[in-house]
Simulated assay, not measured.
Amino acid sequence: MTDCGKQTRDVVDHRTRIGQARRRKTEDKLIKAAILVFAERGLNGTVIDHVVQRAGVSRGTFYNYFDTIEGVREAARVALGREVMLLVKDAVDYDRPAPARVAQGIHAFIAVARQNRMFLEFTARLGRHSYSFAEMLRETAPNFLAAGIEEGAFRPVPEALVYDLLETGTSALLRRLKSGEEVDVAAFVAAMLRVFGVSYDLAAEVAADPIATPHVPEDSLLARGNATWRPSQP
């Protein structure tokens, strides 16, 4: 390739990278705006105009990234879930046996939702469409069940059944928290461990181990959304 050809290609590549960076920046702006508006108006009270006004972009720009309000809501759900995932991962001691790791993860997930009402709103209202603890496990530890079985900590259980029970169980518990009910989180964690074949006594012992509540950074989407969340929203 001639020097001229290489320079042309480099210019094109540079422009492409700049264009991609700008696109990501605009998409991030829309997602952040959506999260704040959802927090203020609720999941059912938000329309596209609310999002574009908060983001300071046109409706046309919105449609370059999302087709519907449900599309940006899904992106917001995933963005919040990513932050929760990192917080939960930091709360888990990966040197502990498999039952303790799972217990710490569930405790941390529930603790984050409990202290961030907006994420609790997303999770409780969207149900199986929310970012669940089961989904987090699929992404961060796809072989956790097989590894636990191999080390003798879990009994052979169909993987799909485990994920279904974790997903529906966690969602149901968060709905109870959202409605203001008192819940026994340790008992719930112990019950989930029993699904893995952990003995009753060990499950109760591990589930009772306290963990430090994950710290949510003030500049995170979780904290910013939680700060504007309105409990009176429909």
Results as ranks from 00 to 15, higher is better:
residue 92 V to K: 04
residue 21 A to M: 09
residue 192 M to G: 02
residue 161 L to V: 14
residue 188 F to L: 06
residue 45 G to Q: 07
residue 106 I to Q: 08
residue 162 V to A: 10
residue 78 V to C: 00
residue 172 A to S: 14
residue 86 L to M: 12
residue 64 N to C: 11
residue 100 A to Y: 02
residue 128 R to M: 10
residue 180 G to T: 10
residue 179 S to H: 10
residue 134 A to K: 05
residue 188 F to K: 02
residue 123 T to K: 06
residue 61 T to M: 08
residue 78 V to R: 10
residue 20 Q to L: 15
residue 53 Q to T: 14
residue 227 A to F: 06
residue 25 K to S: 15
residue 76 A to R: 00
residue 135 E to V: 06
residue 101 R to G: 04
residue 25 K to V: 08
residue 105 G to E: 06
residue 151 E to T: 15
residue 195 V to K: 04
residue 38 F to C: 09
residue 29 K to W: 00
residue 90 D to Y: 00
residue 219 D to Q: 11
residue 162 V to E: 01
residue 188 F to M: 04
residue 213 T to W: 00
residue 227 A to E: 14
residue 226 N to L: 03
residue 120 L to V: 06
residue 196 F to Y: 13
residue 64 N to S: 14
residue 224 R to M: 13
residue 132 S to N: 08
residue 76 A to Q: 01
residue 134 A to L: 06
residue 54 R to K: 15
residue 131 Y to W: 13
residue 52 V to Y: 04
residue 162 V to W: 01
residue 141 A to G: 08
residue 219 D to P: 00
residue 39 A to G: 15
residue 138 R to L: 12
residue 202 L to S: 10
residue 195 V to W: 01
residue 21 A to T: 13
residue 45 G to L: 10
residue 103 A to D: 04
residue 74 E to H: 09
residue 215 H to W: 00
residue 58 S to M: 06
residue 157 V to Q: 13
residue 125 R to K: 13
residue 57 V to K: 03
residue 172 A to L: 12
residue 137 L to Y: 01
residue 36 L to E: 13
residue 196 F to A: 05
residue 141 A to C: 06
residue 179 S to N: 10
residue 6 K to R: 15
residue 106 I to K: 02
residue 149 I to S: 03
residue 49 D to G: 11
residue 126 L to Y: 10
residue 18 I to H: 03
residue 170 T to E: 13
residue 191 A to G: 11
residue 132 S to K: 04
residue 157 V to F: 05
residue 205 E to A: 15
residue 125 R to I: 11
residue 165 L to Q: 12
residue 159 E to R: 14
residue 103 A to C: 08
residue 105 G to S: 15
residue 63 Y to C: 05
residue 125 R to W: 01
residue 142 P to M: 08
residue 31 I to L: 07
residue 158 P to N: 05
residue 230 R to A: 12
residue 60 G to E: 06
